[in-house]
Every structure is written in C-alpha cells, then in structure tokens.
Amino acid sequence: MNNLCIRFRDAILPIAGIIAAWQLLAALRIVNPVLFPSPVQVFFAAGEMIRSGVLWTDALVSLRRAATGFFIGATLGVLTGLLTSRVRIFSIGLNPLFNLLRPIPAIALVPVAVVWFGIGEQSKYFVIAYSVFLAVWLSTHHGMEHVPDIYIRAARSLGASRGLEFFQVVIPASAPHIFAGLRFGAALSFLSLVAAELTGASAGIGYRLEEARQYILVDRMFVGLVELGVLGATLDSIFVWIGHRLVHWEQA
C-alpha cells in the first residue's frame, strides 16, 4: 500500500501536473492551438479514433509488422550468431561483412527496400528484420565468444562431451547476453517500423502520423505519438519481465 502511494506520488502526480500545465497554456491562448493542441483536444481525437476503430487496427497492423520482422530477424540473428561463434569458417567469412554493415543506419535501407520489394508488407519486414538481425547477431556472437574459459575448462576436466558442454555451459553462460540483444532488438524493431511506415503504407501508427501531418491534424499526431510511447514502454517491460524469469541466474 505504501509502495503504491510512492508510485502514485512519483509517477502519476507529475504527469497530471504536466497535463494540467499544458491545458493551462492552451486555455490562456499562449500557444497556437493548431500547432500545439490542448490535452482535451488530443483526448477527444483519441476518443474519435477509438470509436472509428482506427486506433486498434493501426496498433494491430503495426504490432504484426514489428512482430513478424522481429521474429525473422531474431531467429536468423541467433542462428548466425551460433554459427559464427562456434564454427571458425563462418566467423572468418561473415564477421567482416557484418562489421562493415553495422555502421550503416538501417533507415537508409528503407528506399532500397522499396525498390526491391515494393511498398507492400515485404519491404517493411525486410527493414525491421535487417535491423533486428544485426543487433541480435552481435550480442549472440559476443555472448558465446566470451564465455569464461574457466567454465569450459572445468566442464571438460569433469569429462563433459562437446554436446553437454554446449547445452549445459555455453548456452546458460551466454543466455543473458543473447536476451539483452533480443530486448535491444525489440526496441529497434519499433524504430524501424516507424521509419518503414512513414515512407508509405495504408495502415499502421507511422502511416497515421504521416496522414495526420498531411491533413494538418496535430491532435491526431499527438495521439499517435502517445500510442507509440505506450506500446513501446509496455513491450519493453514485458521483455524485462520475461528476462527476469527466463535468465534469472544472471542479469546482464
């Protein structure tokens, strides 16, 4: 109960204060309401978007895109990371390429993806999967490569086979790194989702932002921003929660 009070004081109260100050600014006509809508306006816009169902369909479309891209990218990233960290041929052949690709911002690939795959779903999956892939690959590769030597030596001196060593020592030791990479990848998938949707789509939160800009409906833009913030924060806390359960032995 006490905890809840502190939470209320620390989280809810300041936000309420911000909204009140914002409303006051708008009510006193200090800022132009077309450029900077009041919270009440934003609230009504959100109500209208909920009633027409746009808010849910956008969220579902965006989440499906992010989830598909994340799933493809994360699977490939973990598998490639396994190969490059355990099999020398792969690390020699692939690491230099990935290291060269890493400094290129993934958003710059959006126009390229549009040329290759059109403006449909595929180009969005490609951009999201690409950005997730590199992040997850890097953390998997590093996590597996930096398993402390002493663990492996201890396992070998106790007579563990290669398979046993891999599943009982390498995987548990690198899991926190891999999981940190997955969490970072989830945040990235959201970022690339917005980038991909801004350039052309027929639904989705990023698309709704761009549409609202073209029709000069700033209140709807604010609704979209809040929606993105809430979804992003929720996803991240889900990842943290799963992480505490799944790799409870070590928090990276």
Binding site: L35, L191, V194, G206, E210, R213, L225, V226, G232, A233
Partner: peptide, 15 residues
C-alpha cells in the same frame, strides 16, 4: 524517451 525519436519526424516537419 518512451517514444521512438523517428516518430517525431512528421511533427518536426509540421512545426
């Protein structure tokens, strides 16, 4: 901080 910074691109263009 919770909002992806890219989402501010349309708003920044508008403002």
């Amino acid at each position: 901080r919770a909002i992806p910074s890219l989402a501010f691109v349309p708003l920044a263009i508008f403002w």
